[in-house]
Design a protein around this nucleic acid. Sequence first.
DNA 1: TCCAATTCAGTTGTGTGCAATCCTTTTCGA
DNA 2: TCGAAAAGGATTGCACACAACTGAATTGGA
Lengths: 161, 161
Amino acid sequence: MVVTDEMVCFSLYAASRATTQLYRTLLDPWGLTYPQYLVLVALWREGEQTVSSLGDLLQLDSGTLSPLLRRMEQSGLVVRSRSSHDERVVTVAIGERGARLRAELAHLPSRVAEAAGVRGGDAESLIRTLQEVTAAMHAAAASAPEPDTTSSDVATGATGR
Amino acid sequence: MVVTDEMVCFSLYAASRATTQLYRTLLDPWGLTYPQYLVLVALWREGEQTVSSLGDLLQLDSGTLSPLLRRMEQSGLVVRSRSSHDERVVTVAIGERGARLRAELAHLPSRVAEAAGVRGGDAESLIRTLQEVTAAMHAAAASAPEPDTTSSDVATGATGR
DNA sequence: TCCAATTCAGTTGTGTGCAATCCTTTTCGA
DNA sequence: TCGAAAAGGATTGCACACAACTGAATTGGA
């Protein structure tokens, strides 16, 4: 069914934007965006991280994280510092304001989950499905750098990223 | 469960980006982006549309659509024209190149659906769940413009947007 | 009839996302 | 040990997203 095929992706796209929209509304009083909030959650939960480990956790690359972290540092949410062991590595730690927000934003996740209207068990099964789709999409994008080519000359340095 | 609460939204966000990524790979030979492809699908299926009806279909506003449609017109994908009945309204029709692409891109949806790894019935139930979540998020964002306000010392110029 | 409110698309400003590239630092093999 | 390759993050360029605003066209009510 052609329509169904398109709809999986579009529903995902629309749902993601609707979710970000709700977070925008809820985070606006603190001047936070959803990706910035995700960085804070990662730091609260996992502690100090390098830029690349943050990128692994959030599935974002340095082109997105670098300016995002710069803005977050300017507003006191995080602190960046070069590692002394390896001068290439930048460590991101929670900043003073970022630490204060932990308590203030503690009620957010349950509010959003409640708004989403998915109950406990359904939520877990939805999460599992979405993670499977994500993994499948990553695999497909990596294995199909070119659209058709008939013969696959994937060779050379056609790495996904 | 706090972690589960966060995970619904993050999984959605990650899955949406992974999906867009696959579309980027597949559409790259034609120089199309995923939102541009969605506009073409809407026009192929529904025919000529106004900017606002396209916005309703794709859940995008004029701030996103205007520049997007301008680029699409420049590359011959669509044609824009002011309605003669109502000079405020701009009508978007398929362009010459956009019409040609219909056949060339006809195989895309099934390829993506296959890559996603969701079978027919599961796909429909996933779509339904995502649409419910989207509707719930929109409703929540609309009904909760302010988060709490009990204390709020947000003051100072820390506004993000 | 006439003007205030609405509607519609476009513009502006900010913040992601991501490919491609750059520069520095580190690693590793000959 | 020395230079090529790799790793890590930053920068550049482009295309969304979206809030807020602008300006033109239309509508509706007094």
